[in-house]
């Protein structure tokens, strides 16, 4: 299938998901262009993580379509071509406690690719070195600091050379200095590895420094989509209200022309 209606790497059309009576996603439309970092912002409980999980298939959406790299991944086709390389970085890092940092990073290569032991070791050691984790290679996640665990999770997300990486609140639980460290890391490795990223983050406005596009998810819909610089002009809108209130007390937004959807 190469029938993605646009040249977006990721396209979501009218995605819906409800948990009982709670309509979390109510027709979400979003496009992510190759090589960009798109950040989804919104109040807690507005379904940002649900959106990411629905895109990668961890949650089954109720309706809509998800297109990844020209392939429709939801609803699934019977003889769907192999999914393009994508990876997911979890809020909790989701590292395996019984595996060392090296083994955690090597896991997807060992289980999914046909690379030999030596090639895997070479690749993982290279990443460990670039992430300044060489000394931590044989240590278990429980023996690492929060920042180091984050970097191990990041290395694991990058080790398969994905075209798109999904980040679910990658800076949760980190102090301000480490938050900037993680954002710098994403920006740096995006330059080096050239991946596309879709982020969910609460760190406003810090996250804008690495974002090419921002999408505001509110009441189950994307209500704003545009460049971070566009947001500054929207002072009278509900989005600005949301930003001013530090994303805790966003109200139902007023519609306006231009960038608000």
């Amino acid at each position: 299938m190469t029938a993605t209606p646009s040249n977006s790497l990721l396209e979501i059309r009218s995605l819906t998901k409800a948990f009982g009576d709670n309509q979390v996603l109510d027709g979400v439309d979003l496009k992510v262009t190759e090589g960009t970092v798109t950040t989804v912002i919104g109040k807690s409980g507005m379904g940002k993580s649900v959106l990411l999980k629905a895109i990668v298939g961890l949650l089954e959406p109720d309706g809509g379509e998800v297109w990844l790299g020209g392939n429709r991944t939801f609803p699934r086709r019977k003889h769907q071509p192999d999914r393009m390389a994508s990876s997911f970085m979890f809020q909790s890092n989701a590292l395996f406690d019984s595996l060392t940092a090296f083994e955690n990073i090597a896991l997807p290569l060992r289980e999914v690719t046909h690379l030999g032991r030596r090639a895997i070791a070479e690749k993982v050691n290279g990443l460990l070195k670039r992430m300044e984790l060489s000394d931590a290679a044989s240590r278990y996640p429980g023996e690492l600091s929060g920042g180091m665990r984050k970097r191990v999770a990041f290395a694991r997300a990058l080790v398969t050379d994905p075209k798109i990486v999904f980040f679910d609140e990658p800076t949760t639980g980190l102090d301000p200095e480490r938050k900037f460290g993680v954002f710098d890391l994403i920006a740096e490795y995006r330059r080096d590895f050239g991946f596309t990223a879709l982020l969910v983050s609460h760190d406003i406005p810090e996250v804008f420094s690495i974002s090419d596009r921002v999408a505001w998810l509110d009441n189950g819909k994307i209500r704003f989509e545009g460049a971070p610089s566009d947001i500054k002009g929207e002072v009278e809108t509900a989005l600005a209200g949301f930003l001013r209130r530090g994303n805790n007390k966003a109200s139902g937004g007023q519609e306006s022309g231009g960038k608000l959807i």
Binding site: K53, V56, G57, L58, R83, S86, S87, F88, F90, Q91, S92, A94, L95, F96, L107, P108, E111, V112, T160
Partner: peptide, 16 residues
């Protein structure tokens, strides 16, 4: 614990 810590989800996203 692996379920709560999203390790099982992580495997799925890795294609395992």
């Amino acid at each position: 614990i692996q379920r709560n810590d999203e390790q099982i989800d992580a495997l799925q996203t890795m294609g395992i």
